Each structure stands twice: as structure tokens, then as C-alpha cells.
Simulated scan of single mutants.
Amino acid sequence: MTDGTGAGVAAGGEPETSDSLRAFGEVVKAFRKRARLTQEEFAPRVRYSVPTIASIEQGRRFPPPDFVERAEEVLDAFGALRGAARHLSRQPGLASWFRQWAKLEAEAVSLNTYECRVVPGLLQTEGYARAVTFSVPPLPDAETMDQRIAARLARHDLLSTSRKPPTSFSFIVEQAVLERHTGGDAVTRELYDHLLDLIERNWNVELQLMPLRQPVHAGLDGPLRLAETPDNRWFGYSEGQENGRLISDPKEVSRLHQRYAKMRSQALTPEDSLGLLKRLRGTL
């Protein structure tokens, strides 16, 4: 799994708790006790397990968006949980070397991503994310897995067109990544449906597939990302196994821009990519 939440994260990249998470957990606990509910009584009402509730209240797990909404309703929290959730640190579930980029990503007005290994994290389904994690040893324990998945899914709200201003996304993904069928046919089918729905609903998301045969390819040096900040500065990011590097030097960023621009001309057009994706879906 890429995006700093992958399997095989080094010791220095293990998920950590944060003050904001602990504070959120205390707020949840206070409202739960105000409602005179035990964790065992509260859990089925929000459709999460008792261990998950305990982890959230202890500040050890990032609360998924649907948990926040259900808890808000069940506990009649008059908007307090939604408000607190907006200020949560996204550190848990993200490797330490990815957090600086994640902060830039959250504020960016433009994001360009080329990926040749797996589907980019912002486009992944939960099933696909779990399948990737289970593919790469060492396997995490259940709690660490849940933290990583929650952190991944929490970042998906960056794609929303309701953000002001909405971020402009460009993704270039190798066709081979989609045809690998990571996780099996059922996971792949769900992934295809998710991508098709996302592309057709979100006018700010552009997906291009790099065809299997491309004799001249500007991305042979590996994955890359580019982010434009609100003040129109550009940063790059590259990621390998158990490490990542934020790139701020203008000359290096310029080289990445040149490569990405070339790949956009080498990949299938967004329209042709959509057609290919539909054909791939039709084979399952």
C-alpha cells in the first residue's frame, strides 16, 4: 500500500497517537456516559465493535467518517463530535515520513499523481487497501490494520467537489496495475465500479491509463507526485519501500513537471481511459 500507510512500514513509521485524537476520544466518552450507555450498548448502535469503540475513546484509532456521523446522532451531541473531528490530526495510520506531504496534500489546489505499483491511495476502496496490505509482509496486527485503513479512507474527502475551492486531480496509472486483479475478482470488480463512479461524478478528477505497450515512457524512474499550494508554490514527492522524500528544490520540481507533462501525452486520453476501464469491467 502506498501513501505512507503501507505494509512493511519501518519502526520509525509506525502509526502514533496524537493529542487531538485523545481529546476527541474523551469527548466521545463524555457524551456516551451522558447518554448512560456502556461501550457494549453503544457499539451496536453505531455499528462498530466494542474494541473499536475502546480504541477510539483511548485516542488510538482515527474515527472513520461514518462513525462520527452515527455517534453524533446516537449521542445527540449537537454538532460537537463533527466539529471536533474536523480538527483531528491525520497522523495515526500514516508513516512519519509521509505526514508532511499529507499536510500539503490536504491544502493543495492541484495534485498530480503517477503510479506504477498500485492504485493510488485516494482512489482505493477499503477492500483493495486491505488486499494490498495482506499481500506484503510483515502483516500488521488487526488494530494497526484498522488504523491504516481508517487513515486511508479519511483522506478520500479531499476528492469532494464541495471543498472551496475544490482540488483539481490528475492521476496517471499503469494499465497493468488494474489488470493485476489484486485481491481477486470480487475486489477488482468493486474497484472498477468505484473508479467509474468517481470519474463520472467528480468533474475535478481526471484519470489516464498508461497502456501496456508504450515503447517511450517518461515515467521509468518510478512513481511521482506534484502538489500546488494555495499560494501557487509547487512541491514534489517520491516514495520507495519504507521511505519517502518531499521535494522542494525548484530545479528538481521542474524535472518532475517535465516528466509528468510528457506522460500525460503518452497515456491514453481521459475519454479513452474511461472506455478501457469499462471494457475491463465488462470482462468480470
Rank of each mutant, 00 (worst) to 15 (best):
R245M: 12
E271L: 03
L226Y: 07
L212W: 02
E252K: 11
R255P: 05
D249F: 13
R225W: 03
L207F: 08
L212I: 09
L256A: 02
P230S: 11
I247F: 05
D249R: 12
L209G: 08
R259A: 11
N232F: 15
N243T: 14
Q266L: 03
Q208P: 12
L256S: 07
E228T: 13
G240C: 10
E239S: 08
E271R: 04
H257G: 06
P215T: 06
L207H: 04
S273E: 04
D249V: 13
P215C: 02
R233S: 14
W234T: 12
R245V: 13
Q266P: 02
R259V: 01
P211S: 06
E228H: 01
R213G: 01
Q214A: 07
S248C: 10
L256K: 13
L274T: 06
A267S: 03
P215W: 11
Q258E: 14
N243Y: 15
G244S: 14
G240R: 05
M263F: 02
Q241H: 15
T269I: 05
A261H: 00
E242F: 09
R233Q: 14
E206I: 08
E252A: 14
R259H: 08
Y237G: 06
I247D: 09
V216Y: 00
F235K: 04
V253P: 10
P250I: 01
G240N: 08
G222D: 09
Q241A: 15
Y237L: 08
S238I: 15
Y260M: 08
T229M: 10
R259K: 11
N232Q: 11
K251Y: 06
D249H: 11
E242T: 13
A218N: 01
N204A: 06
N204M: 07
K262N: 05
A261C: 00
K251G: 06
L209M: 03
P215Y: 10
R259F: 02
V216P: 00
E242Y: 09
T229F: 07
N202E: 07
E242N: 15
K251C: 01
V216R: 00
Q208T: 03
G219C: 08
A218P: 08
P211I: 07
K262Q: 05
D231E: 15
L268M: 07
P215H: 06
N202S: 13
K251R: 11
